[in-house]
Design a protein around this nucleic acid. Structure first.
Lengths: 347, 347
DNA sequence: ATTAGCACTCTTATTATTAGAGTGCTAATA
DNA sequence: TATTAGCACTCTAATAATAAGAGTGCTAAT
């Protein structure tokens, strides 16, 4: 367990701030002018040598200024940083952007990723509240003519998922009725997870009474059901990658783009909802592609509707204090907006 | 009007090929070995000087080899190039990728952009067949409970567009029936364009008979209608931008990404369906961001269902002959697949 | 009309050179 | 004992010098 003196702590803090803002290694002379303590550059050099022994700062070459190490950022985030109070202007942007009228949870969540990326100039991810408590509250099959049927699935949270299918013969409402009634009787009110499970087991057997060929229908139902039960990440500010990634290596940028395009991979990167706000720096992120970046993740809580996540991906040299302040505010605003939205469907 | 001798033509062709494949300016000595004509490098230098006078090739500096100019590519494409017969392997890829079962036109068209970008390693655009002849063939309002209604619009081509709306009060089917009936009576069978027009004029008045507050409904209907009537470009191989753009200038890459993300801008870039296959090189493209690239566009024809477009964006130094061959094959395969698909709804 | 020969140009890679920023260490100081 | 001034030393980044190689245009001979 590392403990720093007051002065060492001030120096580390100044190094983190300077490097984060300017992007250049920080030398003892420039620190003299900024520190609230009046000491000479030689003293600062001595202190810096100690911070380096502790592994909190490193040199880029033998006689260069210092930059924070992963460990240094870690110490800064854990012991020094105070979340910055969020800017009034920023708060307005958030509230205004979330203030509009939305017709889907996913619209709100996707919009959130965009707002956050705009405010931070980094790349952001959002995940809607977990679906594990969602229950099936309605299922419809709407014949559209032209050999087409639309399957619509509704949950108690107001989520709607639909898909159109092409079928060999036109169906009339009459033929579909017993099937829909079967679903209504047997499955309405159950958690989606349970429905998914039953779909593997009992349903096929029972359904055989109503339909001579349940296969086609089961495909349709399963398809729209798993669509509704799947977790989707939204990504905002992909273009911002150009601003903070290493410009010398276009391949890396390309790989990152590719990673962010495959949203089903993101669950592994960002991990399950955990602590309130978590900061992972450099190689603390499990994904190798991100070992030179930092990831701030936060869980937001929408009461009985479950928990969702928001995350910011940026360089290790990030203004953590501002970011964490922003995360806190966003968490709240998003949770509030969603509670508001859900209220409709709880009545 | 430029006319080249046989030998000059051979030289230009060789320069285009070499530069396209190798990416380096082409000198007289390397040409000696490749040309089917037996002449010395001095002779070739003389001919090259003439081609340069004509503006077909240029030097990158005073004593460098030559590269084709825009004008040179133009001449090559117009007078020298022969479309390359498409590779059997490639044809298989196309047919296999389009062979699956699709439930929407847009899926086929989006998939097409991906296949084509995969085959070319460039960036591609696809536009579905024009909707101008699409007619409204069905309209449904499905109450979902929870203050939600889904509006579904179907066209005679089997296109389905839907949108979910949140409304203040729950509606029963009974209340919606007269409205849907009104749509059925008055609008079914009309081209979408006409419906859109009527929506601005007569409909609001007539509808007032059935609903005390037609505003909300008109918004819903208008929204899903314009969604159905809008043209959407699909973009494939955005990541390929990394392969063929100028790596020295990340800003440019970022701007291009940004351009391709705003798919509503693409209509201006690509233009309306025109000639069979059109090649635009460098500044022949109206968009300034693309003045160092080439764009090959092609129109595909699905008979009475209208015309759509496919396009390839790549560097000016492109293997035009292969690309044009590929375009031809793709045009055919896509048109065939779509005809096949539409056949369902024509019956 | 073609070609061999040659001086000339320009690029690219390699090597020197230099100014500047920063360090660590020693010895003096409070 | 903690701090500081002073200085030799290291490394980067920018600039300049040099050389090899590829290619050209032009002239004079074929």
């Amino acid at each position: 367990m590392i403990t720093l003196t007051e002065r060492q702590s001030l120096i580390l803090k100044a190094i983190v701030r300077d490097y984060t803002e300017g992007g250049n290694p920080v030398g003892s002379k420039s620190l003299v002018q900024e520190l609230p303590v009046k000491v000479s550059s030689a003293t600062i050099r001595n202190e810096m040598a100690r911070l380096e022994d502790l592994g909190l700062i490193v040199k880029t070459h033998l006689s260069s200024g210092r930059i924070p190490s992963i460990k240094g950022y870690r110490y800064y985030v854990d012991h020094i940083l105070k979340p910055e109070k969020v800017d009034g202007q920023d708060l307005k942007v958030i509230q205004h952007s979330l203030g509009g009228e939305f017709h889907k949870i996913d619209e709100i969540v996707a919009q959130s990723a965009d707002i956050l990326s705009q405010l931070t100039s980094y790349t952001t991810f959002t995940l809607r509240p977990e679906l594990k408590d969602s229950r099936l509250s309605g299922f419809r099959l709407v014949p559209l003519g032209n050999h087409q049927v639309m399957a619509i699935l509704v949950t108690n949270n107001g989520d709607v998922e639909n898909q159109t299918f092409t079928i060999p013969n036109d169906l009339s409402g009459d033929e579909l009725e017993p099937v829909v009634r079967f679903i209504d009787d047997q499955l309405i009110g159950l958690p989606l997870q349970d429905v998914l499970r039953k779909l593997q087991k009992e349903i096929p057997l029972k359904l055989a009474k109503y339909l001579q060929d349940p296969k086609g229908f089961l495909d349709i139902f399963g398809s729209v059901l798993s669509k509704a039960a799947s977790e989707r990440f939204y990504v905002g500010g992909k273009l911002n990658l150009f601003n903070y990634t290493n410009q010398q290596n276009p391949r890396e940028l390309q790989s990152l783009y590719s990673l962010l395009d495959q949203t089903d991979n993101l669950a592994n990167v960002i991990g399950p909802p955990g602590q309130h706000i978590q900061v992972r720096i450099g190689n603390e992120i499990t994904n190798d592609l991100l070992k030179d970046y930092s990831l701030i993740t936060a869980t937001y809580d929408v009461d009985q509707h479950g928990k969702g996540m928001i995350a910011i991906l940026g360089p290790t040299a990030m203004p953590y204090s501002r970011m964490i302040g922003l995360m806190g505010a966003f968490q709240q605003e998003l949770a509030r907006k969603l509670l508001d939205y859900y209220r409709y469907f709880d009545e």
